[in-house]
């Protein structure tokens, strides 16, 4: 699993490659918190190259979303495959996050 962080205008774009699970979720959390500390407020996580996310990965997304909102920002998600979308629907996290079908649509919506 690896993360790539890039900028697209005012949006910090995070790509997750591989699995987001208990063994690596803290790394993602810390990378996003570091960006928050640097003043970034708009985040998009792109899951186009993500295999699956476990409950601790989902938990980190929830906690990051809350933290970002508290600081006046926003976290959006894009490119969930059918399995990941099922996971979000089962846990009703699809009601908590704005989820776009593509990265472009997500970026347009900020």
């Amino acid at each position: 699993m690896s993360f790539t962080i890039a900028k697209s205008g005012e949006v910090t774009l995070v790509e997750v490659e591989g699995q987001l699970i208990v063994g690596n979720r803290q790394e993602l959390k810390q990378r996003v918190l570091d960006e928050l500390d640097h003043g970034e407020r708009h985040f998009l996580i792109d899951f186009a190259r993500t295999g699956y996310i476990d409950s601790s990965g989902l938990g980190v997304l929830v906690s990051l979303s809350k933290k970002i909102r508290e600081l006046g920002g926003e976290l959006r998600l894009a490119n969930l495959n059918d399995d990941l979308r099922t996971l979000f629907e089962l846990t009703k996290l699809d009601t908590l996050f704005q989820i776009a079908d593509t990265r472009e649509r997500a970026l347009e919506s900020f």
Partner: peptide, 12 residues
Amino acid sequence: NIEREDGRGLFL
């Protein structure tokens, strides 16, 4: 519970 970080494992 929806904004809790934990508690989804056994449920899933």
